[in-house]
Design a protein around this nucleic acid. Structure first.
Lengths: 237, 237
DNA sequence: TCGTTAATGATAGTATTACTATTAATTTCA
DNA sequence: TGAAATTAATAGTAATACTATCATTAACGA
């Protein structure tokens, strides 16, 4: 009980921390959605609505009706729906990095440590681990279905300069370091990790919509199995 | 000279073949763009314009101005710009499959055959190998920057039923078969190949826009090197 | 507790997008 | 040559992605 409480407090603290970082490093939002009731309704409402409609059909007008606040008020928090999506992905990757830290904190064996991180990166989110107004199960679904759109735009270079993707890079870097711990001579740690992260999402998407493009076996989580095998056989000295 | 001519004829035939397949299997277009001058202007104009503006800012109205034909005429060929993008991806994958066939046709060693295919899938398109009104260098760039949007939509399941992605699946299947030739016990051939294809595109994108997410060395094509190593070490018995 | 400031609500308005409709001009090819 | 098919020219509509204005309410500090 005490342990749980402590962990929950750590998460709370950590989340505040991460949000401050987003706040400082980027110009992602005009007003911090964490700072008000309306802001939180925008975030949690948008998660449900993007999941329901898909990002293309999602609009601030529809969101305003869902949360019963005027469209113009939403625009006081986010310049446009694209920035809101990027904000959500940052939230997600902060959360994932935190889960990696938790999963590897007391693991001393470096191979096992890397494997634990790969687990977090490739396993589906099935339990509501939420400690806040964000539903992580649905957010995970949004990341799988929509997150490629967050960085496939003509504005990528300017947005990158503004730090829109720093949370993601930071998390990738953490795991890439674990790869180098296992094999310091391995030349492609970042390439490997982003291949695994994006690949695992892609395969989840394929398994749902284009199953001919992947291979699933009932008795196992094939995606986790495949990427673990891939990492271990590729990183090996 | 004679050889070149023959190859060129084969390509020509093959392209017609592939287009007939697209025609028959899907409802991708309302009128075959290959069948008229206007249709070809739509395709080649759209390739330049999508590359220039990005898919989001690309509109049929802007395209109509570029090719000097009314917007409504474009709508007689494609229901919407999304279907045009899917058409372009099909064109691209038909062309890639043809390149794989060419690159592997006289290779008897099965490992070498697979490696040749991985080469085609991971190498950049730098020469204008075009035999038609399609500029493959620019098309390759569009695939890297925009193609994820072709299958990340809410309509994916209906579109999949209509056969919108059959060209891609067919090509993946061809290479997956080569994987099984090398190791018949390997359980994840499709997963491996789609990981390589999409991963290689992703890494090209990262190397251009988010270089911290990948690892590039000047003296080599790191992306080709990495994915070859990955395939060979993962497929190994 | 009053008064100022800040945040939100209510409403309206604009340019652009994603189409559809109609009719005239032109091309095709039987 | 003449009918059928294709393309051009033009107009129009609902929805999207915003911006602007002003009224109302909440916050909070003197």
């Amino acid at each position: 009980m005490i342990v749980l409480l402590l962990i929950s407090q750590v998460i709370q603290l950590n989340m505040i921390d991460l949000n401050i970082k987003i706040d400082v490093k980027t110009a992602l939002f005009l007003k911090n959605p964490n700072s008000s009731d309306l802001g939180k309704r925008i975030i949690s409402g948008s998660i449900y609505l993007i999941d329901e409609l898909g990002f293309e059909k999602f609009t601030f007008r529809k969101l305003s009706k869902k949360i019963n606040s005027p469209e113009s008020s939403i625009y006081r928090y986010f310049e446009n729906k694209h920035n809101l999506l990027v904000y959500l992905t940052n939230w997600y990757w902060s959360w994932v990095e935190y889960k990696i830290v938790l999963a590897t904190i007391n693991v001393n064996n470096i191979e096992e440590k890397l494997n634990k991180a790969i687990d977090v990166l490739t396993m589906p989110v099935f339990e509501d681990e939420s400690i806040s107004f964000v539903n992580e199960i649905i957010l995970n679904r949004i990341i799988i279905e929509e997150s490629v759109k967050a960085f496939h735009t003509k504005e990528i270079d300017e947005e990158n300069k503004k730090g829109y993707f720093s949370t993601y890079k930071k998390m990738v870097n953490r795991v890439a370091t674990m790869v180098l711990d296992v094999n310091p001579d391995f030349r492609y740690p970042h390439m490997l990790i982003t291949t695994v992260i994006e690949g695992a999402h892609q395969q989840r998407y394929f398994s749902k919509h284009l199953p001919r493009l992947t291979n699933l076996y009932k008795e196992e989580d094939s995606i986790v199995e495949f990427y673990k095998r891939l990492v271990n056989s590729t990183v090996k000295k």
